[in-house]
Simulated assay, not measured.
Amino acid sequence: MKYIYLGWTTTGRMNYAREWHTASVLTNGKVLVTGGFGEGGAGRLNSAELYDPSTETWITTDSLKYPRSGHTASVLTSGKVLVIGGLGENGSLNSAELYDPLVGLWITTGPMKYGRQWHTGSLLSNGKVLVIGGMNESGGGLKSTELYDPSTGTWTTTDNLKYSRNGHTASLLTNGKVLIAGGLSDHGGLNSAELYDPSTEIWTITGKMNYARNLHTASVLANGKVLVTGGFGKSGRLNSSELYDPSTGTWTITGNMNYPRDYHTASVLANGKVLVTGGENLFGLLNTAELYDPSTEIWTTTGNMNSARNLHTASVLTNGKVLIAGGDNYIVLNSAELYQSF
């Protein structure tokens, strides 16, 4: 049975309940979900599954070589998916794996120099993948960054961050540079931001955010600016939002969300608006969703999700709909739902 609620419809359930997983839109339009943390003592998962938007169903595919949560997944220019690091059964992982959609199989590729979790991974315009920061198995923050070259299947270390951080965001700007913002260091929350230039492989400091935050989101808008939303700050969960302008290297405050939240998702829609979903605040888990209009810098509420959730994924499908999968609602969820803007 399908349920419809103001722009949201339920869709097929995943075969496995999961949170802290990844979701990647493949070149064939299907969505690959990998790993995460399972329900009922299942622990970290090595399972992977595919969502087909044409049938709204999930099928299992080849399992990861290593169970992992808090990892990253990047769709390479070849169409393969690179899964990196995360938390395994025995601590932070340095292993990486490649999924080939044409054959539906995983293979191991070169390991990183450092095991890490809660890091970010960004596909650069040159086809390499930049992995940034994160946390090591002892809980310490990392300054190290590494580059994966798909042509050789190997990693090389590159310039260190100015500040160790995890729980940050990473955004590929239209000029090819990578902006990282916020996160947690060993000394607390950060409002600092840094820029990576692939042509020089060097990090430089850029303007500071107005608010320190971690567990926030960052979205590159059609105008090239970066919208940062919510997260956890010095006074608790935030409803504030800020815009980074790459042309000036500065941040400006923009409209506040209607609800403070962290552990939420943000998706740039085909119409240029940004959809924020779920998360958590002082009063518990959220089923609320909001839309940011860059032309007015105002947030408006949209229909609520069918299930409150955090630690979920959000994927913009090729048909323009947004697929929400899994997460936590005091139990780990296998449910999924679709958002369509009107």
Rank of each mutant, 00 (worst) to 15 (best):
M1V: 13
K2E: 10
Y5D: 14
L6W: 14
T9F: 06
T11C: 11
R13G: 11
A17R: 11
H21Q: 15
S24I: 08
T27P: 02
N28K: 12
L32E: 09
G36W: 08
G36T: 01
E39A: 12
G43T: 04
D52C: 06
P53N: 12
T55Y: 13
W58H: 04
G79D: 05
G79K: 03
L82I: 10
L82C: 13
V83M: 01
N94W: 05
S95G: 01
P101I: 01
P111E: 03
P111T: 03
M112F: 04
M112D: 03
K113D: 12
R116H: 03
S122C: 08
S125T: 15
N126M: 01
K128S: 03
V129G: 09
V131M: 00
S138R: 13
L142P: 11
K143I: 14
T145W: 00
T145D: 00
Y148T: 08
D149P: 14
G153T: 05
T157Y: 00
N160G: 02
N160P: 11
N160A: 06
S164G: 15
N166E: 06
G167F: 08
T169G: 04
T169F: 06
T169W: 06
S171C: 13
G176S: 07
A181D: 04
A181M: 14
S185N: 09
G189F: 07
N191M: 10
S199I: 11
S199W: 05
I202P: 05
A212P: 00
L215C: 07
A218R: 11
N223K: 07
G224T: 14
V228M: 06
R237D: 14
E242T: 02
E242A: 00
L243F: 05
D245V: 13
P246K: 08
P246A: 09
T248Y: 06
T250F: 06
T252C: 06
T252V: 15
M257S: 02
M257P: 09
N258F: 05
Y259V: 03
P260S: 15
D262F: 15
T265D: 07
A266L: 09
S267P: 02
L269Y: 14
A270V: 15
A270P: 04
A270D: 15
T277Y: 07
T288A: 02
Y292H: 12
E297W: 09
W299V: 12
T301Y: 10
S307R: 13
R309P: 03
L311Q: 10
S315N: 10
G320F: 08
G320N: 07
Y330G: 04
I331Q: 15
L338I: 04
F342K: 05
